[in-house]
Design a protein around this nucleic acid. Structure first.
Lengths: 194, 194
DNA sequence: TCACATCTTGACCCAAGAGTCAAAGTTTGT
DNA sequence: ACAAACTTTGACTCTTGGGTCAAGATGTGA
């Protein structure tokens, strides 16, 4: 049945995303992936024609799912409320569900050429979710930034690294609140510089 | 002459740091390193006993040099001035001199066990430079943070990614100023919620 | 020029990993 | 129960990459 096949593919993609996120494209062999699933390498080739195809699918699925979940968050509330919710959800997914996978989106050079443009595209859609909220907050004066791009890049960089050092819910909240300071919201002293 | 040997070793380490930073431990073969230096693989083994030894030396040298340069910055000035100088110098080195190498310090899981603890140690010393300034700023009230650790982690994560999207001096300054907001300094609106 | 030390080479070995495939094992519908 | 479709296996090939080494090349000093 097609249902079963879908589940199988899912399981493979999840295992692959974890491993590739942990050790990178070249650091993971298909045997590694197969081992984690308690099957043999040959079996993977029944579902995917090559390592590259597997990796591409893993990136695609992960990126799409992730963004879908962020886009599904309620759009009610003020920009600060919504941005904090986005940050928290993003970090929560990163830390709890894909503790390593996010790195796939951070180190594009590590991947074969073919994957890079796809990774870039997925990142763009992902960024757009945050950008929309930040820009709305800027328009109504709730946020202040030096420039939008470095602010968003810094947020994403920090969140991608989060699984390395964030453990519990308290860490998630602290990081989310810390990143809110990038848009000028939080336990803020008076500006004294540039 | 020992002088010549030292230069040769330096050249090898620089090439290695760049390549490993770009594509990770498993993504780079010693042939790749040799090619970049226009020599053959065998020649590298005259200077280093193994791939691991080369990698360890590359990490060690890069990490030490980098921190040395940050520690050499003037200690005069207020914490905000000094932190901004630190950030700017760090990003400048990252973007202009080692456009990829920093990533070696970001993805510890990717490296063989032996390297990990060394990487961690080097990062700690590196972090200490920033931590000292941030804590001083907190003591005298110039800075405000949610918590010190996530603040420092976020800074480093963002700076490590910087070479991917920062091009010119303006980008460096913008990122440095953006990161200053993490300690509550900058073009800041009033805090509206915690 | 000759001896000695310092590199560099390229051929070689071996293990690991990508990819193939026929044969065997398992489901599923009838 | 049986056949057809689906899935898994493990043995196989071929390439890549870590590591070795004897031989040659390039200095260096007397």
């Amino acid at each position: 049945m097609a249902r079963k096949r879908g589940q199988r593919v899912r399981a493979i993609l999840t295992a692959a995303a974890e491993l590739f996120g942990e050790r990178g494209y070249a650091g993971v062999s298909l045997e590694d992936v197969a081992d984690r699933l308690d099957v043999t390498k040959g079996s993977l080739y029944y579902y995917f024609a090559s390592k590259d195809e597997l990796v591409t699918a893993a990136i695609e699925t992960l990126g799409t799912d992730w963004t879908d979940r962020l886009e599904a968050l309620p759009v009610a509330g003020t920009p600060p409320e919504r941005l904090r919710a986005l940050l928290r959800e993003h970090i929560r997914i990163a830390v709890r569900e894909y503790p390593a996978a996010l790195r796939m989106f951070l180190v594009p050079d590590e991947w074969p050429q073919e994957q890079r443009s796809r990774i870039t595209a997925l990142r763009r859609r992902h960024d757009a979710v945050f950008r929309a909220v930040v820009e709305e907050g800027l328009r109504n004066g709730a946020f202040t930034v030096v420039a939008v791009d470095p602010t968003l890049q810094a947020m994403h960089a920090a969140m991608s690294q989060a699984p390395v050092w964030v453990r519990d819910d308290r860490g998630i909240d602290q990081l989310a609140d810390t990143l809110m300071m990038l848009v000028g919201v939080g336990p803020v002293s008076r500006g004294s510089g540039a």
